[in-house]
């Protein structure tokens, strides 16, 4: 009887651990250095880096707009990266289920940095640290556009179309 009990407990623990592993495999946690390298990687596309978090209500409210971009723009021209600034303890609990529930199709990474003062300014000099925030880079022409705060879908589409045109002019 006692052995059965122990086995059951052990099985439960293994199950819980494996679940957690699966959840963690889905979302990569990266340092600012790694993010910076990705932003500056040579490519022939435009990159949209969207900073957000599940704890940020305005971000959650407007995530739908950003999530719709991959149907609006060709992935060959616009590469979308969602950078989550969620707390470490919320990744496997809140973030994973949130992404599944909202059917987020674009790539999501978690930025694993504790001190905003080390990296916020390096994304853009005008960024106060408020999220949501978005960085658009036309990699071939090195044109950058940055905006913070909630945006309306028309403004966002216009900004993207404008920066995409940059390359073909």
């Amino acid at each position: 009887m006692f052995f059965r009990y122990i086995t059951a407990v052990l099985l439960c623990m293994v199950y819980m651990l494996s679940n957690q592993c699966v959840a963690q495999q889905k979302i990569q946690s990266i340092s600012f250095k790694e993010l910076d390298e990705r932003i500056h990687q040579p490519s022939d596309t435009t990159l949209l880096v969207h900073f957000w978090a599940t704890w940020c209500r305005s971000c959650v409210e407007e995530l739908e707009t950003y999530n719709g971009l991959n149907t609006q723009f060709d992935a060959k021209h616009l590469k979308i990266l969602f950078v989550s600034l969620d707390f470490k303890q919320d990744i496997s609990t809140k973030l994973v289920s949130f992404l599944a529930q909202k059917r987020i199709a674009s790539e999501v990474v978690v930025l694993n940095e504790s001190d905003g003062n080390d990296w916020i300014e390096r994304i853009d000099k005008t960024w106060s640290g408020t999220i949501p925030a978005t960085l658009l880079i036309n990699v071939p022409s090195n044109k950058r556009v940055f905006f913070e705060g909630q945006v309306n879908p028309t403004f966002l589409s216009k900004e993207i179309e404008e920066i995409l045109r940059e390359k073909y002019d």
Partner: peptide
Amino acid sequence: TTRSLGCAVK
């Protein structure tokens, strides 16, 4: 002066 993240003021 330092920078940090936070919740946007409504």
